[in-house]
Design a binder for these strands. Structure first.
Length: 270
DNA sequence: AGGGAAACCCGAACGC
DNA sequence: TGCGTTCGGGTTTCCC
């Protein structure tokens, strides 16, 4: 499930493969992948565009083109890979870009949730996103202040991409457990100490994810390594690695939420 | 303002 | 075995 670390890994893999390549044509195998543009218009405007660079913003892959940005959000099951000239389309391929070295950039997405935007104005796609959790501007103090301004359950707030950009369900549960914050805590009751722990935990889980995905070349939707290090996610009924209590699973804001009832006390902690 | 529900999808897991 | 049902995941949109 591509979250921030997986997108970061893809960007790192694609950057040397695609930078400087010209897109000569594109096959649109599933039109609804494209946001705000018809397949015909898309094909017409992308042909001849040169890929200037590949970066990441939150969970969006950002390909800078000659006159546009191509943003790709992989959502649940998306995958983006460079294929050799002899590649033939496979099941669930949605977009196939032909590059000027005769290789292909293939967007495959089993569940059809992934989306692609082509725009001259990046703000129209990523303008509402909150701070980047791994940036130096994102400080413990800033997190504390922002939490104080809101009155929301901490779990859904951390998942809100306009509050903080990049955490998905898995990393949120992991970060809450690592920082010993209960998922049902109300944001403006979180102390400075707790906010500092949460800040550190968010960075730790994301960085750990990046390291483990980076360590395995073909992780994308074929099983990465980070799953072997889950502290709570998917471990309902199994013992907490810290205290031995059984991990519980509840629903918070319509999302499956895993936590340790002992480590993550619900009471206020100074 | 915040929260709940529905919608978009399909493969895996589950129940019988 | 084979069938039908449920679930989950990220995000947006609508409604209370």
């Amino acid at each position: 499930m591509p979250e921030l670390p997986e997108v970061e890994t893809i960007a790192r893999i694609l950057r040397p493969e695609c930078t400087g390549r010209k897109i000569t044509s594109v096959q649109v195998l599933w039109g609804r992948t494209l946001e705000g543009i018809s397949p015909e218009q898309f094909a017409a405007s992308i042909s001849g565009q040169v890929i200037r660079g590949v970066t990441r913003r939150a969970k969006y892959l950002d390909m800078e083109l000659t006159g546009f940005h191509l943003f790709v959000h992989l959502r649940m099951s998306g995958d983006l890979q460079v294929k050799s000239p002899k590649y033939r389309p496979e099941k669930h391929d949605r977009l196939i870009f032909n590059m000027d070295d005769d290789r292909y950039l293939v967007f495959n997405d089993t569940r059809k949730f992934g989306r692609v935007w082509m725009t001259a104005n990046p703000e129209s796609v990523i303008g509402r996103l909150g701070p980047e959790p791994l940036d130096s501007e994102f400080t413990p103090q800033m997190l504390y202040v922002q939490l104080k301004k809101r009155h929301r359950l901490i779990k859904p707030l951390l998942l809100d991409q306009t509050f903080l950009a990049g955490l998905g369900n898995i990393y949120t549960d992991e970060a809450l457990h690592l920082s010993k914050v209960h998922p049902l805590r109300i944001s403006d009751t979180i102390s400075l100490i707790e906010a500092e722990r949460l800040h550190a935990a968010i960075r730790t889980v994301l960085q750990t994810g990046i390291e483990h995905n980076g360590a395995s070349i073909d992780w994308v939707y074929r099983g990465g390594e980070f799953q072997n290090y889950f502290r709570v996610y998917g471990r309902e009924g199994q013992p907490c690695s810290v205290c031995g209590a059984l991990i519980q699973k509840i629903t918070v804001g319509q999302r499956g939420t895993h936590f340790c009832p002992i480590c993550q006390e619900q009471s206020y902690e100074l």
